[in-house]
Measured scan of single mutants.
Amino acid sequence: NNDALSPAIRRLLAEHNLDASAIKGTGVGGRLTREDVEKHLAKA
């Protein structure tokens, strides 16, 4: 659900052409954090 993404996370996802649903969020309520996105990028 993109409504739960902060603007910074949306921008980071867009810059790397990532789909938020492909990344498991570890923030409050399962929200994506910058660390989640960076860890996903490091794996790729």
Rank of each mutant, 00 (worst) to 15 (best):
N1W: 05
N1E: 14
N1P: 12
N1V: 13
N2H: 12
D3V: 07
D3R: 10
A4D: 14
A4M: 14
A4W: 15
L5K: 03
L5Q: 07
L5I: 14
S6T: 14
S6P: 13
S6H: 08
P7T: 07
P7V: 08
P7C: 12
P7G: 06
A8F: 10
A8M: 11
I9E: 03
R11F: 08
R11M: 07
R11T: 07
R11C: 05
L12D: 04
L13E: 00
A14C: 07
A14P: 00
E15L: 15
E15Y: 15
E15D: 09
E15M: 15
H16E: 03
N17Y: 06
N17P: 01
N17S: 08
N17C: 06
N17I: 03
N17V: 04
L18H: 02
L18Q: 03
D19R: 08
A20L: 08
A20K: 06
S21W: 09
S21R: 11
A22V: 13
A22F: 10
A22Q: 15
A22G: 08
A22T: 13
I23T: 01
I23A: 01
K24V: 14
K24Q: 12
K24Y: 06
K24L: 12
K24I: 13
G25Q: 03
G25E: 01
G25R: 06
T26P: 02
G27I: 02
G27R: 02
G27H: 02
V28Y: 08
V28R: 11
V28F: 11
V28T: 11
V28N: 08
V28A: 12
G29T: 05
G29Y: 04
G30H: 03
R31Y: 08
R31Q: 12
R31T: 14
L32F: 05
L32H: 01
L32Y: 03
T33L: 08
T33M: 06
T33N: 03
T33S: 05
R34Y: 15
R34P: 07
R34Q: 12
R34M: 15
E35W: 14
E35T: 10
E35R: 14
E35I: 09
D36G: 00
V37Q: 00
V37W: 02
V37M: 03
V37N: 00
V37A: 04
V37I: 15
E38K: 09
K39V: 09
K39R: 15
L41W: 04
L41C: 04
L41A: 05
A42R: 13
K43A: 14
K43L: 14
K43E: 11
K43I: 13
A44F: 15
